[in-house]
């Protein structure tokens, strides 16, 4: 069982949370090409390594926050609130 740190409630079991996908996605300008719009809608980083991602503490405080998590080891490398900049963390490649 993964244990995730909620910045508001502390560490809880993963089944209290809902995964919200990649963080820090910026919507492109509305005049962009179809390819750029498709990339914005459908393509995500999906790294084998450190992933910056959103989580919702659905069965807790009900608030969104960000994690930097390693997708091979599931190690949590950083936890930060929505709106805060992406922290500078790197994990060992698996």
């Amino acid at each position: 069982m993964m244990q995730l740190p909620c910045p508001y409630c502390g560490v809880r079991d993963e089944d209290e949370f809902r995964f919200g996908g990649q963080s820090h996605i910026t919507r492109p300008d509305l005049n962009c090409s179809d390819a750029e719009w498709a990339d914005y809608l459908f393509c995500r980083d999906n790294p084998q390594g450190v992933h910056f991602e959103r989580w919702l503490h659905a069965f807790g405080c009900g608030r969104w926050f960000n994690l930097a998590r390693h997708t091979v080891t599931h190690e949590i490398l950083a936890c930060y609130r929505m709106g805060e900049p992406k922290p500078n963390v790197t994990g060992d490649a698996a």
Binding site: M1, D13, F19, G21, R44, Q48, E53, T71, V72, T73
Partner: peptide, 13 residues
């Protein structure tokens, strides 16, 4: 397990 993972290990929930 609905989060990005390359772990090849399933979660308990």
């Amino acid at each position: 397990d609905v989060y990005t993972s390359y772990s090849q290990r399933g979660g308990v929930p």
